[in-house]
Design a protein around this nucleic acid. Structure first.
Lengths: 224, 224
DNA sequence: AGGGGAGATCTTGCATACATGATCTTGACT
DNA sequence: AGTCAAGATCATGTATGCAAGATCTCCCCT
């Protein structure tokens, strides 16, 4: 067997979780996964441990591994942390962005604009992620950028639901405009504030959506 | 063998690294560790993977595990990230600290004061860590607090060297006074600024210390 | 004498085996 | 009929075995 199957497994599982193929709360059985990927339990276990460390999976001793299901409180707190991290990125990026960084930011913003023009939400969300990653890169701080990226991945499974929030895409894009302007103007404080608000409002809208979905689910449960 | 040896191993290794028993850059041989802890390689491997995820260890494929040795650039970036995280903690803690949180902050500060009065650096540094953790706790955001704690642990092996910076303890304590005052006054912006500066200055002093030590080592190498 | 390469040795990465704790099933009792 | 307990069943946690890559050594060649 050629080596290095663990990284492949980790990426495949991460992809499945982030893409929503594996739902939050779902149990991840080592034996089934081993069968599915045609490897032994050992590399599966190692991949699961890594995913647990990155916050996508929770391992309960002797009980198994589960796709992390963030409760309302943990979700709020995670969005708050994300808001602070992104604000920090904005502060630093505004001061340090190189001409290349600025070009990348503008290009990512343009990609978002194209998606908005086509009202193509399925294209907007990846473009949005790229825009944010361009901000991380412009901080010239890889440790910070990596931290931001990890949090982004961790929240990805929940962001997907936002596709259902009406007119969220247009609102998000308008916020991006203000963020980009502040960044290009080198105004760190403004960029930080716009980013903080941008992420927090996402979190809030998401939470209210979650409440609506929960009510819906409860109603279904009663009806059924 | 009764189960659950991996968490114990992880903590023991983390302790050894943070306490400086295992030096940055040192190789961690699975077989030796297994012999030392009287377990098989399997739980050792799993503990190492977890430590790699928390940033204390680096695993190079097919090459083995090494205690992470942050280069100058990564160190600067890590301190910068820490400064931003702590600033965020300060902002939120100033607004949200409960009476219990305030009491804990005051108590931690008093412990620092006692160590300063006795000029006892060995006691000051743990007390300092407790003070900062009290700030994290006061944010009422466990996700953020956990993130801060993880970074604190990650930088711990390097902070130890600061014991050698002259009058650093007094300077640190003076900065704590300003931080505590802002927190108790509910002034989030001031608390954030004081904390950011506090951590950044730590990082800067640390880096210059590192430069001095490096020069010393080089001189020794030439002399030897 | 120094550098490079072939073979030996060692370590990691993965597979498999086994034991213990968790879960599920079944049956008895209230 | 419902509940609880004991046994069966199963999954996890750990140990051990094995193959392949990395490192080290030593010798040959320039």
């Amino acid at each position: 067997m050629r080596g290095e199957s663990t990284p492949r497994l980790r990426e495949a599982l991460e992809e499945d979780i982030v893409a929503g193929h594996l739902r939050p709360g779902q149990r991840l059985d080592e034996v089934s996964l081993a069968a599915r990927f045609e490897v032994s339990r050992t590399p599966i276990r190692e991949a699961l441990i890594q995913l647990a460390a990155s916050g996508l999976v929770e391992i309960r001793p002797r009980r198994g591994a589960f796709v992390v299901l963030l409760g309302p409180r943990a979700l709020i707190e995670s969005f708050e942390l994300m808001a602070e991290i992104e604000a920090a990125c904005g502060r630093l990026a505004a001061r340090r962005a190189t001409p290349e960084d600025r070009a990348a930011l503008a290009a990512a913003h343009a990609a978002c604009a194209a998606a908005v023009a086509d009202a193509d939400a399925a294209r907007y969300y990846p473009a949005n992620a790229v825009f944010h990653q361009a901000i991380y890169a412009a901080t010239a701080n890889r440790v910070l950028a990596e931290e931001a990226r990890r949090l982004q991945v961790r929240l990805q499974p929940y962001r997907r639901l936002q596709l259902r929030v009406p007119r969220r895409m247009e609102a998000s894009f308008a916020e991006h405009e203000a963020i980009l302007a502040a960044l290009l103007a080198g105004d760190g404080a403004a960029a930080a504030e716009h980013l903080r608000a941008h992420v927090l409002v996402q979190g809030e809208r998401f939470m209210s959506l979650l409440g609506a979905l929960q009510a819906e689910t409860d109603a279904d449960a009663e009806a059924g």
